[in-house]
């Protein structure tokens, strides 16, 4: 696999020079702080607005927030960050082929497998590091502000969300291995995610759908056991592995 290590280094250098590491750093830290901060401020905000609500006939009494409020906010933010991530990374592979910037390296012996793996690895490392950083910040603030035990099994719950996000990222690279533009990659990735949510309306297939792994509050509050999503875990893992393998095969056949 010629050229993997220098090209992986190039990928991170590109993320740094183009300001993407900074962008995601800010985004992950912001959302890490935002979730507990908003949960903490919620009662005060409602109190401030209670007079206004009372004039309109709505009486608000004793609004309290718990650790669960903070985590609900945290898990609600994750899809937003994932969408931004897909938008930023969707052109990572296609632009190299459409501009021809990859040609000198392919003619210098860089294997297409190494090229694709370096793209995939850099994206997954950036995403995973950011996700766990975001989680760590929220965890620290939530533990500081609330001592209640309204949420359990946080790490397994986040691991399931991480598996789902890795599947979406691999799906994006699968489409990028043969589609021509980043817009096509975004539309197809978004289309698959949307289709999953539509199919998920039917209760009978819900437990098989990877999108079930993002029902984080049900999982961490005990409303649903982690073992109940085992079929979705298996399917998400299979889709991830298949997308990664097919992206490596298809990039080798891509015409220049």
């Amino acid at each position: 696999m010629n050229g993997f290590s220098p090209f992986l280094k190039k990928e991170f250098f590109e993320l740094y020079r183009k300001g993407r590491l900074l962008l995601f750093g800010i985004l992950f830290v912001f959302f890490g702080i935002e979730a507990p901060a908003l949960a903490k401020l919620t009662p005060a905000l409602f109190k401030m607005m209670s007079d206004e609500f009372e004039q309109q006939g709505v009486i608000i009494k004793d609004v309290t927030s718990t650790a669960a409020t903070s985590w609900e906010q945290f898990f609600g933010n994750l899809p937003v960050i994932l969408i931004v991530f897909v938008i930023v990374f969707a052109g990572s592979v296609t632009s190299e082929f459409s501009s021809g910037s990859i040609i000198p390296f392919l003619t210098k012996g860089l294997s297409r497998t190494a090229f694709m793996l370096s793209k995939l690895t850099s994206a997954l490392i950036t995403w995973s590091a950011g996700l766990w950083l975001c989680f760590g910040i929220t965890y620290a603030y939530t533990a500081y502000f609330w001592k209640d035990s309204s949420v359990q099994s946080l790490i397994p719950t986040l691991l399931l969300w991480w598996l789902y996000s890795v599947m979406v990222i691999c799906l994006m690279f699968f489409f990028a291995s043969f589609l021509q533009t980043h817009i096509q990659v975004m539309i197809c990735t978004g289309g698959v995610v949307f289709a999953m949510s539509v199919i998920g309306i039917a209760d009978s297939v819900k437990k098989y759908l990877p999108s079930t792994l993002t029902a984080s509050m049900d999982l961490c509050t005990g409303a649903r056991s982690i073992s109940s999503v085992t079929p979705a875990i298996i399917i998400a893992a299979l889709v991830t592995v298949c997308c990664a393998i097919f992206s490596l095969v298809l990039i080798g056949r891509r015409k220049i």
Partner: peptide, 8 residues
């Protein structure tokens, strides 16, 4: 430098 590294 990147070109040189890719060629080993």
């Amino acid at each position: 430098r990147l070109c040189g590294e890719v060629t080993g």
